[in-house]
Write a protein that binds this DNA or RNA. Sequence first.
DNA 1: CCACGATGGTGTATCGATACACCTTCGCGG
DNA 2: CCGCGAAGGTGTATCGATACACCATCGTGG
Lengths: 333, 333
Amino acid sequence: MTTLKDVARASGVSVMTVSNVINGVPRVGTATRERVLAAIDDLGYEVNLTARRLRAGRSGTVALVVPRVDHPYFGELAARFTDALAPTGRHLVVEQSDASKEGELTALSQARLQQYDGVLLSAVGLQYADVDRLDADLPLVLLGEKPMPPRFDHVSLGNLDGGRLATQHLLARGARRVLMVGGTHGLTDGGMADQRTDGWRSAHRAAGLPVDDSLVLHPAAFEMGLAREAVHDAVAAGLRFDAVFAVTDQVAIGVLAGLRDVGLRVPEDVQVVGFDNLAVSEHLSPALTTVDPSNDVLVMHAVRLLERRMAGAAGDAEHVVTPTRLVERGSTR
Amino acid sequence: MTTLKDVARASGVSVMTVSNVINGVPRVGTATRERVLAAIDDLGYEVNLTARRLRAGRSGTVALVVPRVDHPYFGELAARFTDALAPTGRHLVVEQSDASKEGELTALSQARLQQYDGVLLSAVGLQYADVDRLDADLPLVLLGEKPMPPRFDHVSLGNLDGGRLATQHLLARGARRVLMVGGTHGLTDGGMADQRTDGWRSAHRAAGLPVDDSLVLHPAAFEMGLAREAVHDAVAAGLRFDAVFAVTDQVAIGVLAGLRDVGLRVPEDVQVVGFDNLAVSEHLSPALTTVDPSNDVLVMHAVRLLERRMAGAAGDAEHVVTPTRLVERGSTR
DNA sequence: CCACGATGGTGTATCGATACACCTTCGCGG
DNA sequence: CCGCGAAGGTGTATCGATACACCATCGTGG
């Protein structure tokens, strides 16, 4: 492995001069610079980022911590962040927090996160205490909906509004019994599902309709297969409904499959609304009506806030909630 | 920030003893060990991974480089690798190579990759020369189908077999004009699409049927929206076909949508087969018949080969191709 | 009763790049 | 012709952890 020293020797200057050339410090003469650049090219020298990071403190890298990237929502989010960070000259790496060895949250350890200039941390699946343990002076922006230590900047989606929007839409289209798949009964962790379910409740109240908690189905996880089964079970149990609000598009995909399995037509027999507006949703059969949570706004704010912290700003934490918007497609009338 | 020195001072021992405690070196007395651990706990000390990496060489981290994680195939792959690496005590981070600033392949630079103990590099979207530039002694396993420098271990999917399998299945089910969406005309880069298209050709020849290249549609990218439009255009142009082999499930989703748009029924009018067996595919309407490329086998081999290199093995590079398997669902008869 | 091995612990150089203070040399104004 | 500032360049300490050689103490077998 070639180091600064090798380049210095090869070009007959000191290591500092080589370092200065690499970092574009202007105090190097043109002839010298060229000699050094030639030597770098010659030896195929590349800077050791680990050493630079240790000495200079900066790494040029930002981490995005999400539960798993095989959930399309997080995959799409990661790609958005990558694009948003590219113009700033910083590089994004993705860490998955669900993949813990023996329940240890390795991805979340202070030691690991400290390697980065900044961290975008999706709060989904994390506990308040885990996050509270983190150093306050690590540039960190929280994403997602869980209640989290207020000392951190926090950007979240408009879950309450979105849940209300989705449900209102169904009610306005004539639905009277709106199944909430992936909802929660009462407050659990104050997270995404709680908030979206609250929106569902709130829309019922606003319309002067009763809130029937037996319509709230809570599968063990927000996965397509489980949602599909939940629909089978509900129908088998004789539960009557004329619409479904699925807590995520992912769940909605399972719901659409489940309804098809039991011979119910969408939107004629049952209307369906999702949440997230995944890329795949407009290509489903039928195309999925869904709540668009303005991920672009989320990303924009998160990057802005993180840049501010990385630049050393110490001010109060900012808490942002994105606007939501209903995207009407074929799964509702 | 607290360092080893602080802990040493607080517990009245040398930094080396603290280091030995942290690394579980057995030459530390029980009483001392406990005193040190107490001090660590007290001060909230966490090891500086950057310093450790610089000195000790190891980082405990493996990078997976994929084009983008918003493509479900890569998202699912990343999650699989994360799970496969967890038992080895190593940590996975995901880098995206498509996100280049001004066309620069930052994720692929030697400097960046050298930070990791090992690298799993998806060759999709990379050039031979880019990869050839990399140091041979970096533990690296190539994934994917492009022709790449043979000095690296390389695990790829059985694209040729899979393409043949898919097409054979369609022909066996009575199809006579199989549209290949996302195929290529002749050899382009020897990559995934070329190989799958070859499989399509090969199946035709094996069945004694003519190979009609006008049936090969090549959208600009393997995206749902473009595939959907490609189907519209083909139908509008009067192209006749009774089946579609989509180069990926992602493309197949677009194809299903496109066929629905123009009023063609699947599988009655047109049968469809995809490739990848994404999680979503079994929940589509109709459920998608697809080629399962044994990603678990891919992951297993890749991890095995990488471990071998990280352990210092120097032997010849191994090249593995995974077996493929057809998963029959509702999109074929 | 001494030599020697086991046990427990320490000092120092080092990984590679960079911050910072300092040193030359040269041109030019007074 | 001297002094001073600018331009170009260098030496050294340092970031934090670890490898390695070395040191001290003590128990025990010959």
